[in-house]
């Protein structure tokens, strides 16, 4: 494992923990898109189908369990927690799951490297992860009012994607047969979705003003 991959995993982990801790401690999910969180829970569930069958390393298994556990916990908090669910901006978070789910499923059925259930589900999770942030970005754009933790959550997720690209570049040059077009293209698209957010995030940081997205 190279340094970019490890740093990518750690920012990914940090993003999820920031969100979970925010919800748990301030008992509010204001500004958080349930749609995005449900899509991530589905991403992990479909990608790690073989978690108890294929063993890669202790590190991998533990990380997978953390991502599965934290994503489903966040969804549970927003939907079921007595206090937290009242702070959910239901009327603003109107992005339709199906607009993302259906194209990803069709694409996974058509463009995959092997037509087996496991492989199609894995490919579906790659495509879905690329676009799962969209409901969250739309919600941020709509409410414009971004608290620090939600801003940090999106920033850390974007950093994780950028670091994974560096990891792929590194692996491409250091490992033989490391060519993964599907993962790379989906990953690059996913990272580009954050470009606009990053721009405003750095502007607000540079000028030390509160992060606000243009309408």
């Amino acid at each position: 494992m190279n340094i970019f991959r490890l740093a990518g995993d750690m920012t990914h982990l940090a993003s999820v923990l920031v969100l979970l801790l925010k919800i748990h401690t301030i008992k509010s999910c204001s500004g958080v898109s349930l749609k995005t969180q449900e899509l991530y829970a589905l991403v992990f569930a479909t990608r790690y189908l073989d978690i108890f069958v294929t063993y890669v390393s202790f590190y991998n298994t533990v990380m997978k369990l953390i991502f599965l556990g934290s994503s489903f916990s966040i969804v549970w908090y927003i939907r079921r927690h007595r206090v937290v669910r009242r702070s959910y901006d239901k009327d603003q978070d109107t992005f339709r799951h199906l607009f993302l789910l259906l194209p990803c499923l069709v694409l996974a059925l058509v463009i995959n490297e092997k037509f087996t259930f496991k492989e199609v589900m894995w490919t579906f999770s790659i495509y879905l992860e690329a676009v799962a942030i969209l409901p969250q970005l739309v919600l941020l754009q709509r409410t414009r009012n971004i608290d620090n933790l939600t801003g940090q959550y999106v920033f850390l997720l974007g950093a994780y994607r950028a670091l994974y690209i560096l990891n792929w570049i590194y692996r491409y040059f250091t490992e033989e047969h490391y060519v993964h077009w599907i993962t790379w293209i989906a990953g690059i698209i996913q990272t580009l979705l954050y470009a606009d957010f990053f721009y405003y995030y750095f502007q607000s940081w540079k000028n030390s003003v509160k992060l606000e997205l243009p309408a």
Partner: peptide
Amino acid sequence: SSSDDSKDEL
């Protein structure tokens, strides 16, 4: 398959 090689990624 490719996904088997890259299964070491999360």
